[in-house]
């Protein structure tokens, strides 16, 4: 559904020294430099797949999505989405995709969302029957009852985002580019949006690329992740494989009934943290059940939980290491 080969986007950015003297100097001679926002990215996404796009701010995620949705002309490389070249912006291409930007809005601020829906309905040439069916479905899935006739500026952020999503998906696109769709929303609303995206994907077999700062969005929706850093892909593969591979240990958290010395705990597994009656041990995956069995029978344990390490931490380590090798158990990594 999406094929990307050697995609690049370079920007020319004007540079100015701070302060008055800097302003005067830049008035006469403006310096500029070229920034490689996306620097040779290649990947392929199958129809119906949901892929998480991760990376720090400025890593090139949004620029890639903008190129895939036809807003930006790539500096080099090729991209095909649903058989179209995005930047040609053909009507049939635009009717196939959508781009939702959590920080931007398309709804008309001073009018009810329903008015914006009417405009999209006409522009996308949606038939009356399709429109009615989609509205019925979305109203139920997103709980839109009662908010569609309110002025957009009077809606809460969460309500507005639900309307934004509905407006962006009214034409039932097959490819969804979701850029931070849950930014600024409370946890309940995040869950709601996630569930909606999952339901939409299941219902229409839509292909989804999602970027989010909330790791929970990605873990809940995407099996596969692509991690970008400084315009390059540093990881492309299964989320679970990444966790296993980058972190060969599980975290066993113990709530003890009486204190146990660090030395004694170290005889079971390396201790990551010991804080009074609370301890965290890093236990190799293969030995998790054996070691926890021993811990439970041999130590005064009140409670035990076994967890995977925090994904954000793993991703963080990935950025720091900078030398991510294609791991044998994963899909190939494109540099």
């Amino acid at each position: 559904m999406i094929e990307v080969t050697g995609l690049e986007k370079h920007y020319t950015v004007a540079e100015k020294e701070p302060g008055l003297s800097g302003s005067i100097r830049s008035f006469f001679s403006r310096k500029s430099k070229t920034v490689k926002a996306v620097d040779g990215v290649s990947f392929s996404i199958a129809s119906g797949e949901m892929v998480g796009f991760l990376g720090a701010n400025g890593a090139g995620k949004t620029t890639t999505l903008k190129m895939l949705s036809g807003l930006l002309h790539p500096t080099a490389g090729t991209a095909t989405v649903a058989g179209f070249t995005p930047f040609e912006r053909r009507a049939s291409f635009l009717k196939t995709i959508t781009l939702v930007m959590g920080q931007k809005q398309q709804l008309l601020w001073d009018l009810p969302a329903l008015d914006s829906f009417q405009v999209n309905r006409a522009i996308y040439e949606i038939s009356d029957a399709d429109y009615a069916a989609t509205m019925l479905e979305f109203t139920e899935l997103l709980d839109l009852e009662g908010i569609l006739k309110k002025q957009v500026r009077k809606l809460s952020l969460g309500e507005r985002m639900k309307c934004e999503l509905a407006a962006a998906l009214l034409h039932r696109p097959k490819v969804l580019f979701l850029d931070e769709p849950t930014i600024g929303l409370d946890v309940n609303m995040q869950v709601r949006i996630r569930e909606f995206v999952a339901a939409y994907n299941a219902r229409f077999n839509a292909t989804v690329i999602l970027t989010s700062h909330y790791m929970a969005d990605v873990t809940a929706l995407c099996k596969r992740i692509i991690v970008v850093d400084k315009g390059r892909i540093i990881f492309d593969g299964d989320l679970s494989a990444l966790i296993e591979q980058s972190s060969p240990a599980k975290i066993v958290k113990l709530q003890l009934e009486s204190s146990v010395s660090r030395e004694h705990l170290e005889t079971y597994a390396p201790v990551q943290r010991l804080d009074g009656l609370f301890a965290e041990l890093l236990v190799p995956r293969a030995e998790t059940s054996r070691v926890s069995g021993r811990l439970l029978s041999e130590l005064p344990v009140a409670d035990v939980t076994i967890e995977d390490p925090d994904i954000e931490e793993i991703i963080g380590q990935l950025f720091q290491s900078q030398r991510v090798q294609p791991l044998p158990t994963l899909e190939s990594v494109t540099q």
């Binding site: 903008k66 949705s69 036809g70 807003l71 912006r89 009507a91 049939s92 635009l94 009717k95 995709i97 959508t98 781009l99 930007m101 931007k104 809005q105 398309q106 999209n120 522009i123 996308y124």
Partner: peptide, 9 residues
């Protein structure tokens, strides 16, 4: 803001 307009056919 032009972006959301350019996405429409």
């Amino acid at each position: 803001e032009l972006s959301s307009r350019l996405l429409r056919p």
